[in-house]
């Protein structure tokens, strides 16, 4: 049996034929293409989950500050506020805060797991850990969710891009939200096709989003875009779980995201030359960062 797959259609066919979920398909594929055993692969992913959990905890309990001193500490504020009847609902608000926490830790030179990149590393751990906490999902189940998310991310990597320099922010926080949405659906008992619908809905929501980091740093707007990515993933998953489908099939959504990404001018692809980075305030901040050169701390 060949467990490799290159498209959403192939993945669904594989899942249907074997009667398995996306996470199981991804685990079997990994065993087949690599030199590691199933146990080793699951152990490695469990180590990723552990670092993810540590990064969320650090950002929500310690006063982190970025190297540039521009950011840090806002995740904690939002997380506390989430207990007092937030408009977006406390579970969503907690997940958004957790997503910010990871990227604040990243900016403070803490340890994170790229998912799929460092700049989008908050979304997946935040929605899995916060939803998992609320619903009593154990670590084995959360690790399954990571494999499902990995499958979706891989389909974007193969057929489009997961690099902001190549496809803008849609390729980073967009893909992360799509990965997280699919994982939520599988862990909530949804079918593989519903996972792809959730991923499609999430990415369609931010198709075309540019990458315009102020001063070229992974901070503004990245941290808050991770918060929005978490909310995007949760709602996309809910829509798919209640039976809403994506009119445009997943593989076509991936292709369209890629073609849009290629149309985005280089100024808006991580070069910090356009968008928010090119605003008067953005330029002022960049000049300040450059003046820090040569100073130790």
């Amino acid at each position: 049996m060949n467990y490799d797959f290159n498209t959403g259609v192939e993945l669904i066919k594989l899942c249907d034929e074997e009667g398995i979920g996306i996470s199981e398909a991804m685990i079997r594929r990994e065993v087949q293409i690599g030199e590691s055993t199933r146990e080793q692969i699951i152990a490695e992913m469990t180590r990723d989950l552990k670092v993810m959990r540590e990064s969320v905890k650090k950002g929500l309990t310690e006063k982190v500050q970025s190297v540039s001193r521009l950011t840090g500490g806002e995740a904690m504020t939002l997380y506390r506020y989430a207990d007092f009847g937030p408009l977006s609902g406390s579970e969503t608000c907690h997940a958004a805060a957790a997503a910010m926490a990871v990227v604040e830790v990243n900016a403070a030179m803490g340890r994170i797991v790229a998912a799929p990149t460092a700049g989008a590393s908050g979304i997946l751990p935040a929605v899995l850990l916060e939803t998992g906490h609320a619903r009593g999902w154990d670590d084995d189940k959360l690790v399954e969710g990571l494999f499902c998310a990995g499958a979706i991310g891989m389909l974007f990597a193969k057929n489009a891009t997961i690099s902001g320099a190549e496809g803008g922010c849609q390729a980073e926080t967009g893909v992360a939200a799509a990965m997280a949405a699919a994982a939520l659906v599988e862990l909530s008992g949804g079918e593989p096709l519903q996972c792809l619908d959730a991923a499609s809905i999430a990415i369609k929501n931010i198709e075309g989003l540019v990458c315009d980091p102020v001063a070229g740093l992974v901070e503004c707007p990245c941290i808050k875009r991770n918060a929005m990515g978490a909310a995007n993933a949760l709602l996309a998953a809910d829509m798919a779980l209640c039976g809403i489908t994506s009119l445009i099939p997943f593989d076509e959504v991936v292709t369209s995201m890629y073609s849009v990404g290629r149309e985005i001018r280089p100024e808006y692809r991580e070069t910090a030359k356009g968008g928010l980075a090119a605003t008067p305030t953005g330029k002022l901040i960049a000049a300040g960062i450059k003046r820090m050169n040569g100073r130790e701390d």
Partner: peptide, 20 residues
């Protein structure tokens, strides 16, 4: 088409803020 491992997507574990 590159033959990605799941750990090319989830991972690496790294000290931030930027892979490059």
């Amino acid at each position: 088409m590159e033959n990605y491992s799941v750990f090319d997507i989830i991972g690496p574990r790294m000290t931030g803020p930027s892979s490059s």
